[in-house]
């Protein structure tokens, strides 16, 4: 039932994606009751999750694509082999 800090923070990371099981969350909370260091990790982790979410909205609106020049080169490379 007792977790190490490494295991506890792994569960905390999993819970950021809502994929930790009920039992895991129970064990995590038990650990947090006794461990200040991991308590800080949990708090900071949710702040980081907000940052990652912000980054997601930026990255996903940034349209990455191949430019015409790159496509021409690709096409020529392919034609050589045809």
């Amino acid at each position: 039932m007792k977790l190490t800090c490494n295991q506890a923070t792994t569960i905390c990371d999993k819970s950021q994606y809502k994929e930790a099981s009920f039992l895991e969350l129970l064990k995590l909370n038990l650990h947090l009751f006794l461990c200040k260091k991991c308590g800080k990790y949990v708090k900071q982790n949710s702040i980081l999750s907000k940052c990652y979410k912000k980054k997601r909205t930026i990255d996903c609106t940034k349209n990455q694509c191949l430019c015409d020049e790159e496509k021409r080169t690709m096409e020529n490379n392919l034609k050589e082999k045809l």
């Binding site: 990455q64 694509c65 191949l66 496509k71 690709m74 096409e75 392919l78 034609k79 045809l82």
Partner: peptide, 17 residues
Amino acid sequence: PEKWVPLYADYLFNYTI
């Protein structure tokens, strides 16, 4: 194959990126 780049390059690139 001669149509691959115009038809699929963008799609494959998006998948990869």
